[in-house]
Design a protein around this nucleic acid. Structure first.
Lengths: 110, 110
DNA sequence: CGAAGATATCCGCTTGCGTTTATATACACC
DNA sequence: GGTGTATATAAACGCAAGCGGATATCTTCG
């Protein structure tokens, strides 16, 4: 676990919504606030802070606004956790994909 | 989201620890309690209940004991969420794997 | 009966989320 | 420089939820 628990960060539906928004492209803080009508500006700003500190988003100043962009690499942590369980659910993968997966297993953890 | 939010279920470190234990094989409730020395029996039992209701574990009675087994299919939900972001992190995949991934994209969601 | 577990209560504590209000920056434009 | 806009932050507050402990009880099986 890092400083902030990635699972906890992502467990919040609002934050997942923000990530989903950003997956469609960059958005300024203001646009994100507008996109989240049930939340006030400080609330959105706090969520963005959490995402920032988790490394899931990056900010770029653009004039007087701050443009947020997705930085999904942080999700690798969760992906790797999940990966250990993928073998347990029924195969909907092709034999080739299974092979690749098994080959990846041999690489061992990062 | 289902009845219980899978992200929330998995966000708890104790529950992840239980899942990890079960990924090594079946365990009776008692064995799990012993494996979690910092928790009391009711506490472990409550976590197992959450995992059960989330569909992440299954129970099988065995005499006077209850044997738990991993039922990782429920994690597909998280896996599918993550899948939408995988394209955003730098490739450590081979071209072949990229191809497979793109092909899977076209299949659309389950 | 005794052991294994699940459940139920009650309690205390902490944490997280959201609001409101106010302030602090930083830039933009005149 | 002054003013306005965009954001971040801070502080105080209420509220709900989650976790864990302790304890007791119930069921089931041996």
């Amino acid at each position: 676990m890092s400083v902030v628990d990635m699972f906890t960060v992502v467990a919040d539906p609002t934050r997942r919504a923000l990530l989903d928004l950003l997956s469609a492209g960059e958005r300024s803080a203001g646009e994100l606030v507008i996109a989240m009508p049930r939340l006030t500006q400080p609330a959105v700003s706090r969520h963005l802070r959490v995402l920032r500190e988790a490394g899931l988003v990056v900010v770029r100043p653009d004039g007087q606004r701050r443009v947020y962009a997705l930085h999904a690499e942080g999700l690798v942590e969760i992906d790797e956790w999940i990966a250990r369980y993928r073998r347990y659910w029924p195969r909907h993968l092709s034999a080739l994909e299974e092979h690749l997966e098994r080959r990846n297993d041999k690489k061992g953890p990062t």
